[in-house]
C-alpha cells in the first residue's frame, strides 16, 4: 500500500533558480496492483520515486509506504521496499551470488534464510548457470536478472521499478515485464515508471500521467480514454499533458 499526499521537491538550479521537480503529487496504489507512472524524460518520475524510497527528503508533503511514514520511519520504509532502476549497475568484482547475498545481509536476513531464498530466486529466474560468475563477466540480460534478485531478496511488499527496461533487448525486457506481473499476482504493490506507452498499456492497472512535476491525471486506461475522448493511447497521453496538436 502506498499513499502519497501533496509531495513536493524543490531543487536549486544555477540556470532556473528554485524549481519544483515534483509539485504537489498525490495518489494511492494498492496491493496486487501495478501503478504506472507515465511521463516524458525530466517529468519528475525519478525524483518522486527517490522520495518514496527515502533517498531524497521531500520539501513538503508526506507519504506512507506499507504503513510507514517516509519522513519519520525511513528505515522501516526501506525494509519494506524493493527498488530496481534501469541505470543500476552491479559490483564488478563480486559474483552474482555474492551480490545478492550482500543485499540479503544488509536487509538483516539470517544466513540460512538468505541462502534458501537465493536458491529459490535463482531457480525461478534461471540464474544457476552464472551464479558464481563475476559481475563484469555477465551479459546485460544476466545483469538485469541479478538486479531483480537483489531487489527482492528480502521479499518486500512494495516494489518500485524506475525505467527498468531501458537499455535492455526485447528478450531481457520481457523477463522484467513477466517478473512485474508475477509480483502483482503475489499481492505486492508495484509502481512502474516509464516513458514507453506500450509497456503501460500491457502492464498497468492504473496510470498516473506526470508532466512538469505535476500529476496531470490518474485512472485506469479506460477512464483516461473516456476522460479525453481518444482511443489511441498516445493521443490520450498528449491530450492529458496539454500537448496535443
Amino acid at each position: 500500500m502506498i499513499e502519497v499526499h501533496e509531495l513536493t521537491k524543490t531543487f536549486q538550479d544555477k540556470k532556473r533558480g528554485a524549481f519544483n521537480a515534483v509539485d504537489g503529487v498525490s495518489f494511492t496504489a494498492r496491493p496486487g496492483e501495478v501503478f504506472g507512472l507515465l511521463g516524458p524524460n525530466g517529468a519528475g518520475k525519478t525524483t518522486l520515486l527517490r522520495m518514496l524510497a527515502t533517498i531524497l527528503t521531500p520539501s513538503s508533503g508526506t507519504a506512507t509506504i506499507a504503513g510507514f511514514d517516509i519522513g519519520r520511519q525511513p528505515q522501516q520504509v526501506r525494509e519494506h521496499i524493493g527498488f530496481l532502476t534501469g541505470s543500476a549497475g552491479l559490483y564488478e568484482r563480486l559474483t552474482a551470488r555474492e551480490t545478492v547475498a550482500y543485499f540479503g545481509d544488509l536487509q538483516g536476513l539470517a544466513p540460512e534464510e538468505r541462502d534458501r531464498r537465493i536458491r529459490s530466486i535463482f531457480a525461478a529466474l534461471d540464474m544457476e548457470e552464472f551464479a558464481d560468475r563475476r559481475g563484469d563477466k555477465l551479459s546485460t540480460g544476466q545483469k538485469q536478472r541479478v538486479s531483480i534478485a537483489r531487489a527482492i531478496i528480502h521479499e518486500p511488499p512494495v516494489l518500485f521499478f524506475d525505467e527498468p527496461t531501458s537499455g535492455l533487448d526485447v528478450i531481457a525486457a520481457r523477463t522484467v515485464v513477466r517478473f512485474i506481473r508475477r509480483c502483482r499476482d503475489e499481492g505486492r504493490t508495484v509502481i512502474f515508471s516509464t516513458h514507453i506507452m506500450s509497456e503501460v498499456e500491457a502492464l498497468c492497472d492504473r496510470i498516473g500521467v506526470i508532466y512538469g512535476g505535476r500529476l496531470a491525471a490518474v485512472g485506469t486506461l479506460e477512464e483516461l480514454r473516456a476522460q479525453t475522448g481518444q482511443t489511441a493511447f498516445e493521443s490520450v497521453f498528449l491530450r492529458l499533458i496539454g500537448e496535443e496538436d
Binding site: 500500500m1 496491493p31 536476513l109 528480502h154 521479499e155
Partner: peptide
C-alpha cells in the same frame, strides 16, 4: 523495532506481512 510493522491505516487493505527470517544477525 523493525520486525513489527506499524498497524495499517484503518479502512485500507493490509499489505502482505513481512515473512519471518528477518533477524538482524550482523550489524550493517
Amino acid at each position: 523495532s523493525t520486525t513489527t510493522p506499524a498497524p495499517p491505516t484503518p479502512g485500507v487493505p493490509e499489505t502482505p506481512a513481512i515473512p519471518p527470517g528477518r533477524r538482524p544477525r550482523r550489524s550493517p
